[in-house]
Simulated assay, not measured.
Amino acid sequence: MATAVQFSSYGNFSSDKFWLLLCVAIALLLSGFTYVIFRIRKRNKQMRDAACREAMENVKETTYTPQIFVEVPARYREVFVQTMEEDLNILNQALQEDRTRAVLSMLHRMHGALVAVGMTEFAQRCELLGRTGGLLGMEDELKKDIKELAQDLMRMVQWQHTI
Score class of each variant (00 low, 15 high):
N58F: 13
M138H: 02
Q158R: 12
L136W: 03
E139I: 00
F122N: 06
A74D: 09
H108P: 01
E54W: 12
A123V: 09
E57C: 13
T120G: 11
T120Q: 13
N12A: 09
V117Y: 00
R109I: 03
R41Q: 15
R109C: 07
E54D: 15
V24G: 00
M119E: 07
C52E: 14
V36S: 14
F80W: 13
A55P: 03
R109K: 15
G112H: 02
E61C: 10
T63I: 14
L29K: 02
A150H: 01
V59P: 05
D98I: 03
T120W: 07
G118Y: 00
Q93V: 10
V5P: 06
K60W: 13
R43Y: 02
W159E: 01
R43C: 05
K60Q: 13
M119G: 03
A150P: 04
E71F: 08
P73K: 02
M138A: 05
R99W: 04
R77W: 05
K60E: 08
M56A: 08
A102E: 12
V157R: 08
N44L: 13
E121H: 11
G11V: 08
L30M: 13
L142F: 00
N89V: 10
I68R: 08
D87Q: 06
R155T: 12
R125S: 01
T62G: 08
N92H: 10
R75G: 06
I37D: 14
Q6L: 11
W159P: 00
L28G: 14
E121I: 10
F69A: 14
V70N: 03
V36M: 11
F18C: 07
L22P: 01
E148N: 14
Q46F: 07
L88Y: 04
F38I: 12
E141M: 03
E54S: 14
E54H: 15
V59F: 15
Q46I: 11
M110K: 05
F38M: 14
V81P: 02
F69I: 12
R48L: 15
V59M: 15
L104G: 03
I26V: 15
S9F: 00
L153C: 07
R99I: 03
M119A: 07
L95S: 03
D16S: 04
L104Y: 05
Q160K: 11
L135E: 12
M138D: 01
V115W: 06
